Simulated scan of single mutants.
Amino acid sequence: MVMFDLPVESSANRKAYRVFRKFLLSTGFYMMQESIYAKLVLNQTEANKVMAYVRCQKPPEGLVQMLVITEKQFAKMETLVGEVATEVVTSTDRLLVL
């Protein structure tokens, strides 16, 4: 999981923000919140490689933090505000109209 708080006062700062965000998306991260991106990897070795790659691509200014959590820990996340969107059908009805 990558969390960041980057300055956007100058045009150079805004460009660095856009480049970093596009880098995260192009390498398989998905946006959880505006400045929180997550990526699923198979093991700790792969996580270390991804973290090293993010370190190389981080903007020169601002705060970038990385956190490794297991899939089991991630599954225990609780959404407190808003609606959870899911495409999983959880109905026991015999007829479903989709």
Results as ranks from 00 to 15, higher is better:
2 V>Q: 03
3 M>G: 07
4 F>N: 05
4 F>T: 06
4 F>P: 02
6 L>G: 05
7 P>S: 06
8 V>Y: 02
10 S>M: 00
12 A>R: 13
13 N>R: 01
14 R>F: 07
16 A>Y: 04
18 R>Y: 01
19 V>W: 00
19 V>S: 04
20 F>P: 01
20 F>E: 02
22 K>V: 02
22 K>L: 02
25 L>V: 01
26 S>T: 12
29 F>D: 07
32 M>S: 13
33 Q>K: 07
33 Q>M: 08
34 E>P: 00
34 E>G: 12
35 S>I: 02
40 L>Y: 09
40 L>I: 14
42 L>N: 07
43 N>L: 06
44 Q>P: 04
44 Q>K: 15
45 T>M: 06
46 E>R: 15
46 E>T: 14
47 A>D: 12
47 A>L: 11
48 N>G: 14
48 N>D: 15
49 K>H: 15
49 K>Y: 15
49 K>C: 09
50 V>R: 04
54 V>R: 06
56 C>I: 09
57 Q>K: 11
59 P>G: 04
60 P>S: 14
61 E>R: 09
64 V>H: 09
64 V>W: 13
65 Q>V: 09
65 Q>D: 11
65 Q>W: 00
68 V>M: 15
68 V>Y: 15
69 I>W: 04
70 T>E: 05
70 T>P: 06
73 Q>N: 07
73 Q>V: 07
75 A>D: 13
76 K>C: 05
77 M>R: 12
79 T>D: 05
79 T>V: 14
80 L>M: 08
81 V>N: 09
81 V>H: 11
82 G>F: 01
82 G>D: 01
83 E>D: 03
85 A>K: 03
88 V>S: 01
89 V>G: 03
89 V>R: 12
90 T>F: 03
96 L>N: 12
97 V>M: 08
98 L>H: 07
